[in-house]
């Protein structure tokens, strides 16, 4: 064993640098869920980036997570694209939650064109948010979406099954929804900070 050196003396001599987390600028895209905003390092959705939402099953409350954001964007007359949603968006339900459907485009694409369409929409720069439900998406395809979201300065939301949780993902934010015993969300990865441990309960509402 060599000589024992006190850590504090190394710091004082400035021979060792300590890295500090760079604080992120605050996001201008609040999620509409105060508890979630608080837990996220930027205080909202990561801007110009992709958010991946992992689901245990369809219809557990994934739309409730994003509908406040979509309502805010469409009321600002900004465009939202839904790429191959798994079911029909039901207009009375969406409108009851404040979304203006005239600014929502529903794009029906074949299984192989989903990612292409999502990338085109993101890259165009004329959509505020793009929601996609790809069935097959590998790391490479998701990275393309992440880059496209950055180019087009748009919010990308990708909804995938929970079994993809083990895969690495280039998404800036990864959320996992749990429906048991009540709707709650776990932050699996977030850019600019350690993901908080534990689950955040979301007020599950059906009305």
């Amino acid at each position: 064993m060599g000589q024992v050196v006190a850590l504090s003396s190394l710091f004082e001599a400035r021979q060792v640098w300590k890295g500090r987390a760079v604080s992120l600028p605050d996001s201008s895209q609040p999620t509409g869920w105060p508890a979630l905003d608080e837990a996220l390092p930027s205080g909202g959705w990561p801007e110009h980036a992709m958010t991946e939402i992992l689901l245990p099953a369809d219809g557990v409350g994934e739309l409730q997570l994003v509908l406040p954001t979509l309502a805010r964007l469409t009321r600002e007359a900004r465009s939202v694209m839904l790429i191959t949603p798994p079911y029909l968006p039901y207009v009375p339900g969406w409108e009851a939650r404040g979304v203006m459907m005239s600014h929502v485009d529903i794009v029906q694409a074949g299984e192989r064109d989903v990612l292409w369409a999502a990338e085109q929409c993101l890259r165009s720069g004329s959509c505020a948010a793009v929601l996609a439900w790809p069935l097959q998406a590998d790391d490479r395809a998701l990275r393309r979406l992440q880059v496209a979201a950055d180019t087009g300065k748009a919010l990308a939301f990708v909804f995938r099954d929970r079994r993809h949780a083990a895969q690495a993902s280039p998404a800036a934010l990864r959320l996992e929804l749990e429906s048991e015993p009540s709707l709650q969300v776990r932050i699996r990865k977030c850019r600019g900070g350690q993901p908080p441990a534990g689950m955040l309960p979301l007020a599950a509402g059906w009305s």
Partner: peptide, 30 residues
């Protein structure tokens, strides 16, 4: 607030329609 080099929305829709088919873009209303 859109970026200045944005593709106009109409052009984006045309591009999607050209590849995905005429009826690929829908708007729903009540």
């Amino acid at each position: 607030t859109r970026p200045t080099n944005a593709v106009p929305l109409e052009q984006l829709r045309e591009r999607l329609r050209a590849r995905l088919g005429e009826a690929s873009i829908q708007h729903l209303r009540r």
